[in-house]
Design a protein around this nucleic acid. Structure first.
Lengths: 125, 125
DNA sequence: CCTGCAGTACGACTTGAGTCGAACTTAGCA
DNA sequence: TGCTAAGTTCGACTCAAGTCGTACTGCAGG
């Protein structure tokens, strides 16, 4: 709980997909490792991704395009994959789009306070 | 200032350095960057170093040898330097030994909760 | 004085991460 | 049927980081 979590109930995410698409491969809660998560967050772009997800919308999953980064698509794929494989984000496939959201509950359970630091982070000018 | 003035507990650290040796080069508090600190902490050995400093002794600075790592000395120098340059630890030269301690106040001021995560970290097996 | 010890400095090697272009996959739509 | 858009996959390149051996510095004790 605390901070960024807020209301977790009734996440009416989408135009109602029948059941949610199942998440892409990711570590389980037990497999979350602090050093791996910290490594994933030690990159400014990824920090920006997570922070943006935390602050600007936690109600929905967001596609890569939503962030508006001016980088080649293959680079973005790389970073979103790194975040997912570290267990920071979860990704689901919605038709063409692959949407991401932060695993807030899992991270708060394993590393309480970490997401607060990310949310408070200020990109270097 | 103040040094060990009030403490009559007889911290017999040294042949009494007049004032503490001045710290080796390190970033100021304002220069501390979350992504850099996270990067420094994304390595198991460095996580071990910081955790050990936090848990097993915060009263004293400790030399590299105190940790008992079975690694070449040059590797240890590399990691201690990485921690210091990221702003995680402070190092002072005491005669032959270069002793380290965690910059607890600075880190708690900039990234509250981060050190708690390190202290709670459990090395993988 | 000379040796031993704590630790650094430097250089070489290897691996992994970040960056990107180009080709490919697939859903939706006309 | 074919186009377009979102994103992946692959491979290449570059650069930083981790690892280690060896040589060096500088204090201490015989």
């Amino acid at each position: 709980m605390s901070s960024t979590a807020g209301a977790t109930a009734a996440i009416k995410v989408l135009p109602a997909p029948p059941g949610l698409p199942e998440p892409l491969p990711e570590p389980t809660v037990e497999e979350l490792r602090l050093e791996t998560v910290l490594g994933a967050l030690s990159d400014p772009l990824r920090l920006t991704i997570v922070r943006k997800l935390l602050l600007e919308s936690e109600q929905f999953d967001h596609s890569c395009g939503w962030f508006g980064f001016d980088r080649p698509k293959s680079s973005l794929t790389h970073h979103f994959k790194a975040l997912r494989e570290a267990g920071v984000t979860r990704q689901r496939q919605y038709g063409l789009e692959r949407r991401s959201h932060v695993r807030i509950d899992d991270l708060n359970a394993c590393f309480p306070g970490l997401l607060d630091l990310v949310a408070a982070w200020a990109p270097e000018v």
